[in-house]
Simulated scan of single mutants.
Amino acid sequence: MDSSSANDATPIYIREVSVTSFIFEICMKPLSCIRSSPIFNFGGHDWYLMWKFSSTKEVHLGVFLISDQEVKATVDFTLLDKYGNLSSQYKRISRTFSSKSLSNYRDMLLGNMSPENHVTNGCFNVLCTIFIDGKTTTPKLNQNPNSLVKQINNLLLSRDISDVAFEVDGKTFHAHRAVLATRSPVFKAELFGQKVEANTNCIKLEGMMSEIFKELLCYIYTDTTQDAGTKFNQHLLEAADRYSLDGLRKICEDRLCSNITLDTVLSSLGFADQHNCSRLLDSCLNFAATPENLLQLTLRQEYLDLMKSFPFVFAKLSKRANASLAFQNIVNKKQTVG
């Protein structure tokens, strides 16, 4: 890399605006060399932004991974106008990022992004949104057979000293009152509160699937949980709310934010509104309001269902999309062609 590498970063203002999006304020000068931002963290990985201006003052942008592993991701760049609204200048790059390609400037986006009309006080703003593909990795238990986590996990698997059982969706799960009460204030009230019934050795739970309760117990005993897809994480988040497990709720919301697709975003919007998941709602709105995505989503029945069932969310989506000149331009082009 040249003298303008990540270690010689040009001062730049970075502002996180949502769980997946950052705004970079970039100065127009100098124009003659590749420059880079300070390192920022997203999705558990370290990244930095690089940019270079061409002779025609078009900006070339690229995001580079520093972490020592490969990450498959999609990165959207949108220039913001002087008022902070999305402009019509939008670019996307989807690939597997690797620290081995740090000096591969060919990965930078080229052409058609001209910030000159959006400059204020010598600088312009770029909205960068990153979507990481794939599943969240579940931490492995400490393999030391004498470790506390391993021993507590073995406690969950053992029925010998369990003192309470739960019947969930036709299946029985054995557990330990002290562990449950220590982790969850709801379990504490149900198992040790003043209104505890005399016979609480086997408690029947309604409104929960057995695989979700099994995963709930796994989190309570080991602080780890698997990622089995969007629907699974939605149900697990509901269970976390039911038993006031804030840490589990955060894990589920992070997973849902990291796995937004065209097939899941509309249902996730409604779910986020129902369960007061502000970060998930913001991430879904950012994804759905992207011009290319919104045009595909409007053709789906789920989009009409969202209009009817969640008018408040739909109004937010419409407002965010209408702020994008890129969306307006695409609609106008379609009408002209038609």
Rank of each mutant, 00 (worst) to 15 (best):
L148E: 15
K72L: 04
P311Q: 09
E167H: 07
G111W: 10
M50P: 02
W51V: 05
K82H: 06
F271K: 04
Q274Y: 01
L297G: 05
E302F: 04
L237P: 11
Y219V: 01
Y303Q: 03
L79D: 09
S324N: 08
K82V: 12
E238Y: 06
I330C: 08
T261D: 01
G247L: 07
A189T: 10
D273Q: 13
N286S: 13
I220A: 03
R249T: 04
F53V: 00
D2Y: 13
N153F: 00
D160T: 12
V17D: 10
N117Q: 09
N144C: 07
R159F: 08
S158T: 15
F42M: 05
T129V: 09
Q151V: 01
T290H: 14
T230R: 08
G270H: 07
L155M: 15
S5F: 08
F213K: 07
F64V: 03
L237W: 13
I330Y: 02
G338W: 08
Q69R: 15
T224G: 04
F232N: 13
V75R: 04
G270T: 07
P38C: 06
E190Y: 06
L65T: 08
A323F: 00
A178R: 14
G338A: 11
I260V: 15
G170Q: 09
M1Y: 14
S54K: 03
K91P: 01
T129W: 12
T261S: 14
Y90C: 14
Q69A: 12
L236Y: 06
R15H: 10
S158A: 11
L141M: 12
T200P: 00
L191E: 11
T172E: 11
T290Q: 09
E190F: 12
A175I: 08
T224S: 10
M1C: 13
S244I: 14
K333G: 04
